[in-house]
Design a protein around this nucleic acid. Structure first.
Lengths: 109, 109
DNA sequence: TTGCTATATGACTATATAGTTATATTATGC
DNA sequence: GCATAATATAACTATATAGTCATATAGCAA
């Protein structure tokens, strides 16, 4: 079972994973990967982000365990590691929507 | 129902909330609040963090909607806004534990 | 070999923010 | 009024990192 209090190390590890989800660009990349396994080039095309930038985001997401990858020839295919990303983002998205409902409406775009 | 794709604004709002959970000190504060409503001074005593630092973290957590507060006399009592923090942290904690199980064991402390 | 494509990485800049110190605010008691 | 306590905030420093540009690496084709 889970311990009552978390060690400093555990707090750092958990915070590090939240940080991986704490950037709009990375959330956008994950959103693309929600559609299925993709190459880096496909992610570039669908997000419009810079190549080096996407590559670094993918390294970070991989280090955080949110995506897996496999190399095929000259390409690298990335995919979501599991369904936790959905659960986490859906929870957060629900909060934002709920707040928008009380605060007023979400600005258009 | 949830939209298929998220707008830039929504991505920013969701990322901002993840960022609120992306710091060990804030996770520690939330962990303290898991034990119930607390004043700032109580949080200071239990975390050992600096006063100004805790105050700023609490402002941020409040702005992100994770905690509510009420003033009583000269004190401010903070408490968790809802149970989402548990769900989010438990999900992340589960990931860290699972990874620790495969990677090797978690370093002691 | 040369050239081309896909991806990764190093160097750099600009920005955000955690933490600290000092100060301001606000409520209470005398 | 004044003093004290609890909390918030402003100014500052140090560090982390998102983004960009240039370059490196690696596979494939001719």
């Amino acid at each position: 079972m889970a311990p009552k209090t978390l060690s400093t190390t555990q707090l750092r590890l958990i915070a590090q994973r939240f940080k991986a989800l704490a950037e709009p660009s990375r959330l956008e990349i994950l959103s693309v990967l929600k559609g299925g396994e993709r190459t880096v080039t496909e992610i570039l095309d669908r997000t419009g982000l810079g190549q080096a930038n996407v590559s670094k985001h993918l390294q970070l997401l991989h280090a955080a365990g949110f995506v897996t990858r496999r190399k095929v020839g000259v390409s690298t295919w990335y995919r979501l590691a599991d369904a936790d990303v959905f659960r986490l983002c859906d929870l957060m998205c629900g909060r934002v929507e709920k707040e928008a409902a009380t605060t007023g409406k979400l600005f258009t775009r």
